[in-house]
Design a protein around this nucleic acid. Sequence first.
DNA 1: CAGTGGTCTAGACCACGGC
DNA 2: CCGTGGTCTAGACCACTGG
Lengths: 240, 240
Amino acid sequence: MNNKKFLHEKVYDEIKDRLLSGYYSTNSLLPREVDLMEEFEVSRHTIRKAMDRLKSNGFIRKIKGTGTFVNHIKPDYDYTLSNMTSFSEIIRKQGGNPNSIILSAKLISPSEEVCNRLSIDPEDPVYYIERLRRNDDEVLCYEITYVVASYCPDLDDYISPKASLYNLYEKKYNLELGDGLYKLEAINAPNDISKILKISINSALLYMDAVIFLNSGVPLYYVKAYYIGSKYRFSTKLTR
Amino acid sequence: MNNKKFLHEKVYDEIKDRLLSGYYSTNSLLPREVDLMEEFEVSRHTIRKAMDRLKSNGFIRKIKGTGTFVNHIKPDYDYTLSNMTSFSEIIRKQGGNPNSIILSAKLISPSEEVCNRLSIDPEDPVYYIERLRRNDDEVLCYEITYVVASYCPDLDDYISPKASLYNLYEKKYNLELGDGLYKLEAINAPNDISKILKISINSALLYMDAVIFLNSGVPLYYVKAYYIGSKYRFSTKLTR
DNA sequence: CAGTGGTCTAGACCACGGC
DNA sequence: CCGTGGTCTAGACCACTGG
């Protein structure tokens, strides 16, 4: 087991378990910070760090001068996916078997559109990757990715039906992924896409267009994805 | 002015100013926490609290054992769309004239689904608001909102074709809005919705389902919206 | 090895809510 | 008024990075 867990993580996990199991029930008052300090034998700072995380993840609410209350825990909390996750992670988290049919994976010179999105020159090569994303043998998505080649030498050698690009970026190339700018809209499947996805024309698709940056703020890749409407849902948490 | 600003807020604001003004330039190393402690004459905890917020807002990145670096601040970044914005704000920002046709606005007892989403009891009344959202006379969206009535007494008296609910919450009721949990998917317009929106059946719709919370973490309202696919695009920034 | 950010403690005082 | 969570201090030690 992982015994290098921090105290605030242990406290977070334990209280989260109690919330999910119903030991602390919806809208009830949680023990005071002082009580939790005594129970877990940690300092107030550690309790507060765990509780702040529970709060920002939507499990509890704090009211100054009054106490800490249990929120209604949504049964299908796919809002855990609200941070950027790879297709593979999402499918795997739902107990599925993510894989891809690779339609194309080659080095190309970027179009003007791709240059603009990735802030690069037409001379800078990008990898063009065209995939059908599947769960087992069920096609969910048609996806085109443009990756700045200088960050991922020989990327085409590492791509495989089971490989997650996220994993390659992080594990193989030691890239630290940062923000992603996403745009989503609903469209009726155009002729060509409907053929590729083997769905009837005019079926609703969720079209996603995203640029993903490195931690340093530099664009790493640009992706266009067509998700079959009935088979994908995008979840996110936004703040005012 | 608001002089009751906390120390960590002052530190945050000052460092944020320096980042935006370019005083600390992109990818440069920020002063060590100890140096900032001395400069601002506060404890390390206070510095860290300010820096954690700067980090979670994407301004800086910290690397353990190395230091804290300045991220590239995206110049053309459209913060307004990526943060939670009202329909009215989005339309107005694009130079449009947002308005609504109010199909219904009344106090009701919530269904079980609504109770679960809003963490309330069936005895707690909610306002049921059904609207067609338009730009000038062009219909863009059909929307149903359930608002916890206890936070907004007499809400139905203030609703009008030109009123923004956001404005009412913030200005009229002095509510501080916090997070929102959004789910988005593409659907083919069902019969009833296509009639309401006066579009052909099976047109692609962007279906949005969201719960919006107050700053305290309590749910304020639950909204279901059907956007005509070709007329709306959802943008957001996510972090890994 | 020295220096950085990450964790953690044991205190103190304040601001707010409710009695 | 008391009790709550929010802010803040002054320490300590650890884990990681890089020379």
